[in-house]
């Protein structure tokens, strides 16, 4: 039973079917089998958050999920945030406008965390905002512009900035396993 197990995972709206060893981490599945290298691996022990994705609408660390556990799940990665026609998600635009990135390695994880936060809590308190963002590590920016970007995104979304159809709309899970 360490033999490969067939799984089907919906990633950014598209089905990805593969036979995978049980121990294959979801982060590796997304990067190799789904060919989506935007989800980055920074620590493989659940602290840095670079691998944050949305799994059934909830922000989770892909390095702490086995791909076999994600069979049947709906996953959104950073590649799924922009419009099919290319328009950036308001959170992506906000990070650009606020100079919220330098090397860019932690950025996809922060984008997913921020998207998840603002979907569930459109008007987060300072406490709620920091609680979410503190789950992702950045070593380049010192966080000031990342926090500013999240607030900027909050304002843009509140003002009715278009959220691309692909991202998040199907993501509002209620935590059922």
């Amino acid at each position: 039973m360490t033999d490969p197990i067939p799984i089907t995972v919906t990633v950014n709206g598209a089905e990805v079917a593969a036979e995978v060893p049980p121990r294959l981490l979801l982060s590796d599945f997304l990067r190799r089998h789904a060919g989506l290298t935007g989800t980055h691996v920074g620590c493989e022990h659940g602290v840095c958050g670079a691998c944050t994705i949305l799994l059934d609408g909830e922000p989770q660390r892909a390095c702490l999920v086995f791909a076999v556990q994600a069979d049947g799940a709906r996953i959104t990665t950073v590649e799924g945030l922009a419009d099919p026609d290319g328009a950036l998600h308001p959170v992506q635009r906000a990070f650009h406008e606020a100079h919220g990135m330098q090397c860019g390695f932690c950025t996809p994880g922060f984008l997913m965390t921020t998207v998840a936060l603002l979907e569930r809590t459109p008007e987060p308190t300072e406490e709620e905002l920091l609680d979410a963002l503190a789950g992702n590590l950045c070593r380049c920016t010192g966080y000031r512009n990342i926090v500013a970007a999240a607030r900027r995104a909050q304002q843009a979304l509140a003002a009715g900035a278009g959220v691309p159809a692909a991202a998040g709309a199907e993501g509002r899970g209620d935590g059922e396993a």
């Binding site: 990067r31 190799r32 989506l36 290298t37 935007g38 989800t39 980055h40 691996v41 990665t77 950073v78 590649e79 945030l81 922009a82 950036l88 992506q92 990070f95 650009h96 406008e97 100079h99 990135m101 860019g104 390695f105 950025t107 996809p108 984008l111």
Partner: peptide, 23 residues
């Protein structure tokens, strides 16, 4: 001037190419 970065677009889209993305 604080010109917005030219690097951002592809990195925001997850289209960066870091060494582990090269295979």
């Amino acid at each position: 001037r604080s010109v917005p970065r030219v690097e951002d677009e592809r990195l925001l889209r997850g289209q960066g190419r870091y060494v582990d993305d090269i295979h």
